[in-house]
Design a binder for these strands. Structure first.
Lengths: 126, 126
DNA sequence: ATAGTATATGAGTATAATTGCATATACTCA
DNA sequence: TGAGTATATGCAATTATACTCATATACTAT
């Protein structure tokens, strides 16, 4: 179900249902997606809110990126991650999980509050 | 996020989002849910279509049952499994995955065809 | 009772996922 | 250029998951 296209060195692996579900099936990654609802964030913001190691944060983000659930953009020394709405068009259930389910989870609410505090009182970036 | 209620010996663990996603994030279990779209099936039917070992089939079914995605009912020597629509009301994204995504997957289409053949030409049960 | 069938489970193995530490890379700013 | 910051990645340890084989349990029918 995965499409692998070789164009010179470029390798594109189209995410399929199981890979997307595997990427979603983790507490930390769900919390990351919840944080990204409000807009893009850099690795250090996420790291601070979730209180997990930088390398771990980076790996979780990469897992979501490989599944095409998020995309990244480098701006000076920071890498900003944001939700990939193109994939949500193809797999609408992802939007439903992020928009409808996240709000019900207590940890997710607290994460958003903590994010606001961190944003207010001097972030690592920007 | 899990609610654990002790009433005498009864233990009820309410399935939460991550557990449901973990239960869904597997090829064989997605194929099982696809087969159950048309109605209840016993273990041997599923085993035959997916071409996996009986013990493995039983464990996958248990994983889905613990996540409350399916329910089981014993009828004489067979155990019939079916979709748990109560959970789908609580988590509508599951319905969307099963109804909208399964149909797009080739293996799932073939599984349904094979199931019809097995049902037609003498099943193990009933 | 006994043999046969359906399902569940314990034990062991193989593989995959998560994590942390140390380090490499990329970028900025003085 | 050199120091500092942000992010990614190699490696190793730990844990979780999937799978198989053998066996136990539950039920049916003779």
């Amino acid at each position: 179900m995965s499409i692998i296209a070789y164009t010179h060195i470029l390798v594109v692996i189209s995410a399929d249902l199981v890979h997307i579900l595997k990427a979603l099936a983790d507490d930390n990654r769900l919390r990351i997606l919840n944080l990204l609802r409000d807009g893009e964030l850099c690795v250090c913001d996420i790291e601070a809110v979730l209180c997990i190691k930088q390398s771990n944060t980076s790996r979780h983000l990469n897992r979501l990126k490989v599944a095409e659930i998020i995309v990244s953009e480098k701006k000076s020394q920071w890498v900003y991650y944001r939700l990939n709405h193109e994939t949500f068009v193809k797999f609408p259930f992802i939007s439903i999980i992020i928009n409808d389910e996240m709000g019900k989870i207590n940890v997710c609410k607290k994460d958003l509050e903590l994010l606001e505090k961190i944003k207010a009182s001097g972030r690592c970036c920007d």
